[in-house]
Computed example of a mutant assay.
Amino acid sequence: DLKEPQTADRIALQREFQGHPSRGLTPSKLAQIMDSAEQGDIMAQYELYEDMEEKDAHIMAEMGKRRRAVAGLDWSIVPPRNPTAKEKNAARELQEVIAGLEDFAELMFDVTDGIGKAFCCLEIEWRRSAGF
């Protein structure tokens, strides 16, 4: 039963239309969108960024370039300065776990979608493996 995502046959459709806040955008409307985002209401910021990427190929290309650059960076997990043995061990174990992820570069690319949209949405796919 656990060989496929448990949500695979569950679906909820909701009819929702994007707000397109870039239509009739004024400096005061932009300020309102950004103020709302700072106070936790990020939907208009998300929609504005989506509009910008859709309507401006240059923005989309530049952000794609930067996102791919981040995904291709070398990385490592390092313990804090003057680490305890437990911190060194935790850093080493975490390095091994992340290095073992098959799609880590793709994950990093997907995470960077939150740069302009204020969040990214990823799903963890859980599986049982031998011995665990």
Rank of each mutant, 00 (worst) to 15 (best):
L30S: 00
L2H: 09
L2F: 08
R15G: 11
E47C: 07
L94A: 09
I124D: 06
S76C: 03
E96P: 01
Q39N: 13
G100E: 03
N82W: 06
W75I: 01
R66T: 06
G131E: 03
L48R: 06
R81F: 10
F132D: 09
G131K: 00
I11A: 10
T7N: 14
M63P: 00
G100R: 04
Y46N: 08
L73C: 13
E93L: 13
R127S: 12
L101I: 15
L48G: 03
R10L: 15
L2C: 02
A69V: 02
A91S: 04
I33G: 12
E123H: 11
I11F: 02
E123G: 06
A130D: 15
H20I: 00
G100S: 04
P83C: 07
K65H: 05
M60V: 07
Q18N: 12
G24H: 00
G100C: 09
F132V: 11
H20G: 06
I98H: 06
A85D: 15
R127G: 05
R10T: 08
L13C: 03
A90Y: 03
G40S: 08
C120M: 08
G40D: 08
I59Q: 08
V111A: 14
F104V: 13
K55W: 06
D56S: 05
T84S: 05
C121S: 07
T84R: 00
A105Q: 15
